[in-house]
Amino acid sequence: MSKLDGPEPFELFALKYARHGGRKANDNFIGGDLHEVGSDLFYYVWVARRSDKLFVIDTGFGPEAAKQRGRELDCLPAEALGRLGIAATDVDQVILTHLHYDHAGTLGHFPKACFHVQAKEAAYSTGPCMCHSFLRHPFDVEDIVSFVRLNFAGRIAFHDETTELADGLTLHRTGGHSGGLQVVRVWTRRGWVVIASDATHLYANYRNNLAFPAVYHVGELLDGYRTIRRLADSDDHVIPGHDPMVMRLYPAPSPSLEGIAVRLDVPPHES
């Protein structure tokens, strides 16, 4: 698609709301050395915004999950959105890349939203796989109960593999990390950017073909690296789900948002 004749591009933002430090290499890569220091994880929600559409991508987690899992919560995701001038109470479209606790908590902070999720993720997170403690560990049962209640209220939109939500924004299931994980391909002024979420936690995962240890299907996860490369205009157009480097590579929208939000619709400072 030409930048001249395509749809109106989206502004695209990452908002950091939490972090987890003290990690080892084997916390981030299957086969990593437990004696080597590993990258911290930053926790993000994302926003795609233009004159006629606004999508929030993921809803993060709150204080209770932070306490239970030993994460450092900087602010609630809804508060981070407010600093970008977005009221969570007014948001009507939320994309959930998957239903793990750090991506699908705080659903109640979005009382008007329709939530977009892959049907396979709903089946995975409520089905037989949850009999296994290893697979259910990344989920919070109360988040899943909230999700089921929202479904009964008619506020869940289910998708099957690939869906165009708007001209210039599409959903694509990759699976792997979770049964129905989806990535979001967004048309911006610099071309096609992919919010990869946990299809790749860190740049190093997909660039070095290394699997993150929290995984449902390793083969699908590795295949997903090819998918996000195919969907993005370049490796610099892939945005990983938890890499602290995102906050260093991209500029803040304003000085007041330094360390809180960065723009992803402009090129990174370096490759």
Rank of each mutant, 00 (worst) to 15 (best):
K3Q: 13
F10Y: 13
F10T: 02
L15P: 01
K16N: 06
Y17R: 03
Y17V: 03
A18K: 00
A25M: 14
G32V: 05
D33V: 14
V37E: 15
Y43G: 01
Y44R: 01
V45Y: 00
W46D: 06
V47A: 03
V47C: 00
S51E: 11
S51P: 04
D52S: 12
L54Q: 06
I57P: 00
D58Y: 04
T59W: 00
T59D: 01
G62P: 05
P63H: 08
A66T: 02
K67A: 11
K67W: 00
G70K: 06
G70V: 04
R71H: 10
R71V: 01
C75R: 05
C75Q: 09
E79F: 01
A80W: 00
G82T: 02
G82F: 03
L84M: 09
L84V: 05
D92K: 12
Q93S: 11
V94C: 08
I95P: 00
A104R: 02
A104Q: 03
G105P: 07
T106M: 09
L107W: 02
L107F: 08
H109E: 15
A113K: 01
C114Q: 14
F115Y: 12
F115K: 06
T126E: 07
G127A: 13
M130D: 12
M130T: 14
F134A: 15
L135K: 03
H137Q: 09
P138K: 09
E142N: 14
V145R: 15
I156M: 13
A157M: 12
F158L: 13
D160R: 15
D160A: 13
E161R: 13
T163K: 07
E164Y: 05
A166V: 06
D167C: 06
D167S: 12
L169G: 03
G175H: 06
G176P: 03
H177P: 04
S178N: 09
V183M: 07
V184A: 04
R185F: 07
R189H: 10
R190A: 10
G191T: 08
W192Y: 11
V194Q: 04
A196R: 08
D198T: 09
D198H: 07
L202R: 03
A204K: 02
A204W: 00
R207F: 08
N208F: 12
A211P: 02
A214Y: 04
A214G: 04
Y216G: 01
H217G: 13
H217W: 14
V218F: 13
V218A: 14
E220Y: 07
E220I: 01
L222A: 07
Y225I: 00
I228S: 04
L231Q: 02
A232L: 02
D233H: 01
S234Q: 11
S234C: 11
D235K: 10
D236R: 09
H237Q: 14
H242K: 05
M247H: 12
A252Y: 07
P253W: 05
P253S: 08
P255T: 11
L257A: 11
G259F: 04
I260F: 03
A261S: 08
P267A: 12
P268Y: 05
P268K: 06
E270H: 13
S271K: 12
